[in-house]
Design a protein around this nucleic acid. Structure first.
Lengths: 121, 121
DNA sequence: ATAAACGCTGACATGAGTGTGAGAGTCAAG
DNA sequence: CTTGACTCTCACACTCATGTCAGCGTTTAT
């Protein structure tokens, strides 16, 4: 399967597929003409990459355990759990920060609305 | 007051003060030697900018109402409320997304832990 | 007078994945 | 044989506030 077909099957742009390869996440063989040839397994592999990216993991993190995960079950890959837990902490931290900002924003909005009401607008 | 002093008073780096000026948020006068001279009011102005940035507003958005806010009360500046509300929506959207990712992460973690337990590890 | 401390401009780097375009080679159908 | 659809590599752009460095001028204190 060539890159265009893999792109169409997975919904991942050709640009991104080449980027994943650059980051060590995909390793298609090459034809004599230089074209990439992907095995049928690559389709599932790309979906797996897509999923991990959607969890906010970086390509570098994914590269750290992808081979293991593709071969074994996730639970067997000791690299995965710490990364998940670290990411979870980061997410919590981001949520906390956003909640804090949200509170401040709501305070400001309330102040404005109240002040306008008091002025009888 | 020169830029170093303003930086020290506000805790905002010299680099950032020059950036704020570039973005139209500050307008110090210049000495003959090219040095920036800030009025004492600039200190409060920088704190105001800092606060709006901490709410996640961009310098462009801040520039849209900063002059008004510095002269009048926030409630008088009609540009402010829509920006606050728009930002609030963005924040909510980001929080939703992060919550969604968090849920997925927790599911993955649970799966791994359970699977390992079943294997008696 | 000299050195340290301060100021100036301009410009590149950051993060991280993706879009986009140029310039060129390859392949298949007409 | 030509045309169009694919593919290749290389490289810049993007977001946006900030860090950082180079190269140079100015002020201040010794």
């Amino acid at each position: 399967m060539k890159i265009g077909e893999l792109s169409a099957r997975t919904g991942v742009s050709i640009r991104s597929l080449r980027y994943y390869e650059e980051q060590g996440l995909l390793a298609p063989v090459r034809h004599e003409n230089g074209y990439r040839e992907y095995s049928p397994l690559a389709e599932e592999q790309v979906r797996t990459i897509k999923f991990y990216l959607s969890l906010g993991l970086t390509t570098e993190q994914i590269a750290g355990f992808l081979q293991c995960v593709l071969i074994n079950k996730e639970a067997f890959c000791n690299e995965v759990l710490p990364i998940y837990e670290q990411k979870l902490e980061e997410i919590d931290e981001q949520i906390r920060l956003l909640q804090h900002i949200k509170t401040n924003l709501q305070d400001r909005i309330c102040s404005i609305v109240e002040e306008r009401n008091q002025l009888g607008l």
